[in-house]
């Protein structure tokens, strides 16, 4: 039991600064993010924005790669429904996102570590709000150390794991 790892939340998150990778679409959310800057709205410094042309470009592998490489959360920003510069890319993003969240649950990663938001080019204040909320949310969840074995999240799975431990 020497390598017993404390649950992250209990370890105290006072000094923990979450690292969040954000994928923003060029036309709406990235522009909104620039607008937040032009409007001098300060917000939490924890996000690292990666620009893509459309949220439709964002594939699950990119999100998983970010988490695997040390991000504690991933934020995705696209145009509001109906506003996509490429007509429907944001809908494709939404579909993938929903599936990914389910996958996260099965993998034992808190689904709250990923967030998808529609942020229009005029909504600089929403970038500020969403970023701050996301940082706080992930701060509460604590660091995600994917290198460690993921803990089963589903109750049934946890039950099974516990049973396994009892046998060995």
């Amino acid at each position: 039991m020497s390598n017993l790892s404390l649950p992250q939340a209990a370890a105290g998150n006072g000094g923990f600064e979450p690292r969040i990778v954000a994928f923003f679409c060029n036309w709406c959310t990235y522009t909104a993010s620039d607008l937040a800057g032009i409007s001098r709205m300060t917000y939490a410094p924890n996000t690292r924005v990666i620009r893509v042309m459309c949220s439709g470009r964002i594939e699950p592998q990119l999100i998983l790669a970010a988490l695997r490489k040390g991000a504690d959360g991933v934020l995705i920003g696209g145009c509001h429904p109906g506003d996509c510069h490429y007509q429907v890319g944001n809908y494709k993003c939404l579909r993938r996102f929903k599936l990914l969240k389910r996958y996260f649950e099965q993998m034992g990663i808190e689904p709250e570590r990923v967030r998808l938001e529609w942020i229009a080019a005029s909504e600089g204040d929403k970038v500020q709000k969403v970023t701050n909320e996301m940082v706080e949310q992930v701060r509460k969840l604590g660091p995600l150390n994917l290198a460690e074995a993921p803990k089963p999240h589903h109750q049934a799975a946890a039950c099974a794991v516990a049973a396994e431990g009892a046998v060995s």
Partner: peptide, 23 residues
């Protein structure tokens, strides 16, 4: 837009300036 790139199961679709490798 790159939507096809995001969906390609074999990574065969790529987008200039936004390749998988670059991202």
């Amino acid at each position: 837009c790159g939507t096809c790139v995001g969906a390609c199961p074999s990574g065969s679709a790529q987008q200039k300036l936004f390749t998988d490798q670059q991202l």
